[in-house]
Amino acid sequence: MYVSQAVIQLTLTAFVIGIALGQLVIGPLSDTLGRRRPLLTGLSVYVVASALCALAQDPAVLIGMRMVHGLAGGRRHRRRPSRPPRTSVCRGSRSRSSAPPVRSA
């Protein structure tokens, strides 16, 4: 399939717009549903959209699938709040801060 340079640029624009919209939509979904389900769904849609992009015979289908491609790839993940550091690395050992003070005689 021969396409002009303008159509190729339009597929890239559709992909970037899809990523932007995907972050707005999938980000809050992953906050409410958890990370696993949106990640697996986005990955499977991304793979199917990639195959359809490769098999596209019409530039309009290619542009549409690139938009879906971007939507599926536009998932973002929030970082979990950082945990306080552990006081002990080994089981059964005390850290220095919890040991009783040593008295001198």
Rank of each mutant, 00 (worst) to 15 (best):
S93I: 12
S88Q: 13
P84T: 14
R66T: 06
R83A: 12
A99T: 06
R83C: 11
T11F: 00
R76P: 11
S82C: 09
S4L: 03
I19R: 00
I63K: 05
G92F: 11
I8W: 06
L33E: 10
R66S: 07
S88V: 14
M1G: 13
Q23M: 08
S44Q: 07
G18F: 07
R86L: 14
V102F: 12
A72P: 02
L43W: 06
D31S: 10
A60H: 09
M1W: 08
H77A: 15
V7L: 10
S30E: 10
R91T: 09
L43C: 07
M67C: 12
Q5C: 00
V47H: 04
T11C: 10
Y2F: 04
P101Q: 11
C53Q: 07
V45S: 02
G70C: 05
L39M: 15
R36G: 10
M67R: 02
I63E: 06
G27E: 00
V45Y: 02
I19A: 01
V61Y: 02
Y46T: 08
P81S: 13
V3P: 06
C90H: 14
L71V: 00
R37W: 13
S50E: 03
V45C: 10
S50P: 08
R91I: 09
S44M: 13
L10E: 03
L62C: 05
A20M: 15
T87W: 15
I17W: 06
L29I: 11
V25I: 14
G73W: 00
A56N: 10
G18A: 12
I8P: 03
L43P: 07
R86K: 15
M67S: 05
G42P: 01
R75F: 04
T41R: 03
M1F: 12
S93W: 13
L43A: 08
Y2N: 08
L43G: 09
T13I: 05
C90R: 13
P28E: 01
T32E: 00
L52V: 13
V68D: 00
P59Q: 02
R35E: 04
A14V: 01
Q9G: 01
L29E: 03
L52P: 05
R37M: 08
L33M: 14
V3Q: 14
V16K: 01
Q5N: 03
V48N: 05
Q23T: 04
D31I: 08
C53A: 14
G42N: 03
A49H: 03
I8R: 08
A72I: 05
A51V: 08
H77Y: 15
G27A: 05
A99D: 03
A49E: 00
L12F: 05
V45P: 00
S95H: 15
S30R: 12
V45W: 01
R103G: 04
S95T: 13
Q5P: 01
Q23K: 04
G64Q: 13
G64T: 14
S97P: 11
A51R: 02
A54S: 15
R75H: 04
S88N: 14
C90K: 14
Q23W: 04
P28I: 01
G18V: 06
Y46D: 09
M1A: 15
R80G: 06
D31M: 04
V102W: 12
